[in-house]
Computed example of a mutant assay.
Amino acid sequence: MNIEKEVALQQFISYIQLEKNYSALTTAAYEQDIQEFFQFIAAEGLRNLQEVEYVHARLYVTQLYNAQKARATISRKISSIRSFFRFLNKEFDLDDSSFQALYHPKKEGRLPRFFYEEELMQLFEANEGETPKAIRDLAILELLYATGIRVSELTSIELKDVDFSLSIIRVMGKGRKERYVPFGQFAHEALQLYIDLARPRLMKNKNHSFFFVNMKGDAVTARGIRYILNEMVKKTPLSSTIYPHMIRHTFATHLLNNGADLRTVQELLGHTSLSSTQVYTHVTKEHLRKTYMNAHPRA
């Protein structure tokens, strides 16, 4: 049976959207990875998916290495295509052994970047203000640091998701997995001020339930959050660049530095695997080592 590549891809996309509940961003990444693989097999003269063998899979990965793609990127592309062929095996009885036999490249040993507590204090203090924009921006920063949520999770928060009486927020994470994350007094005050004073003025007669809005009154986007954070860091003497996930790294690192256990941090971050959280123990060990080397007279 000849399997049409584009038809098979669209069926696979529907499968991961509807049955696996993958996010729009994840789905788009899968589709792009598979389309790039289609271009590769076409260049190799393969007419259909049944002709793909292990040698082609190995050659494709070799080309990715030759193009100096990051190991994490290569690993993701392998996962995307492997999942696609597994789907084809299930739906069309296509042999999927070519990619199942591939090994993922070892991850690079880079540790996640984070802010030290004194750096974060500079960021908070430099961005205090009384305008609706300043109140909103500080509320965003406070909530990101208080909860460690992903920027995609922050942009999807609605008014009903924030419980001020319990200081807890409902978050819809990856794979549509719901979790509840507490937030502290600083975030509570910043969010309350935003809801009472800033959001009504920013809405500009718009009518929707999204919690954070941009200067036009529409729901804030992930790109908007990145822009806000970059503008905030410019007001400080910090030379570091900033990105939303850096606040998430900071949240996890500070919790572990101050005695939180790994399982609790895993649950707060919404990680399905403890191994995803364990990278932060390496960060805290490195922090301890640097502190020791700087402070001990005979280090």
Rank of each mutant, 00 (worst) to 15 (best):
G45P: 03
D96T: 07
A42H: 12
Y103Q: 14
S97C: 09
Q122K: 08
A101D: 12
V61Y: 00
T62P: 10
E51W: 07
Q100T: 15
Q63L: 06
L94T: 03
N48F: 00
I78C: 01
V52C: 04
A101V: 15
L123K: 04
L102R: 02
I78D: 02
S98Y: 10
A42Q: 15
D93A: 14
F87R: 04
R71S: 09
L49Y: 04
E91N: 05
R110Q: 14
E91H: 05
Y103C: 12
E125V: 07
Q122D: 10
K106Y: 05
R58C: 08
F87D: 07
A101C: 13
S83P: 03
A101E: 14
I78T: 01
R71P: 01
R113S: 07
L59V: 10
G109V: 11
F99Y: 00
E119S: 04
Q100N: 15
H56E: 02
S83C: 06
L102G: 03
N89G: 14
F84I: 05
F40K: 02
S98D: 14
F87P: 06
I41Q: 12
E117S: 09
A126T: 06
N66A: 14
P112R: 04
L49A: 08
A101G: 12
L94R: 02
E44K: 02
Q50W: 08
I78H: 00
S98G: 13
R82H: 10
L123N: 04
I41S: 11
I41N: 11
P112Y: 06
S97G: 09
K90T: 13
S79G: 07
A42F: 12
Y103F: 11
L123S: 08
N89R: 05
Y103D: 15
L46V: 12
V55G: 11
R58I: 07
L59K: 08
F99K: 03
L94C: 07
H104C: 05
R86L: 09
T62E: 12
Q68W: 10
Q122Y: 01
A57Q: 01
R86S: 11
P105H: 05
L120H: 03
S79F: 02
S75T: 00
E44P: 04
F114P: 03
G45C: 01
E119K: 03
V55L: 13
F85I: 08
L111M: 01
L64D: 04
A67D: 15
R113V: 03
S83A: 07
T62M: 14
N48M: 01
S79D: 07
D96L: 05
L123P: 00
Y103H: 14
L123W: 02
Q122N: 10
K106D: 05
E128Y: 12
F114H: 04
L46M: 13
L120E: 07
